[in-house]
């Protein structure tokens, strides 16, 4: 019985990681991509289009990885942690530009 409960929470955690963690990572990816590319001289709308295009593919890959990966804690660390880190970097770049 207890294993069933453990695996149910584990499953919920993976679903949440796939949906929310993946979203955070994709967000951070777009933010950092747009800020960095704009800083490097790419036209703003080009950067916006390019990185949101790639972000959806990234979201797809991380979604699948959330279920395929062995350790769900690592999934959370990479997705939420990586997303937050990239978002912070994006804000720093913006701060330097504006």
């Amino acid at each position: 019985m207890s294993t069933a409960i453990v695996s149910r929470t584990q499953l919920l955690s993976r679903i949440a990681a796939a949906l929310l963690g993946g979203y955070v990572l994709a967000w951070g990816f777009i933010a950092l991509g747009v800020a960095a590319a704009f800083a490097a001289g790419m036209p703003f709308h080009d950067a916006e289009h390019l990185f949101s295009l790639l972000a959806f593919l990234l979201y797809l890959v991380t979604f699948l990885w959330s279920f395929a990966a062995r350790d769900p804690r690592r999934v959370w660390l990479v997705l939420a942690g990586g997303g937050a880190l990239m978002a912070v970097l994006a804000s720093l770049i913006q701060h330097a530009l504006v």
Binding site: I30, A31, A35, F44, E48, S52, Q94, V98
Partner: peptide
Amino acid sequence: VTHTQLEPLH
């Protein structure tokens, strides 16, 4: 993103 976090850049 560009209408929230990156609004100033936009």
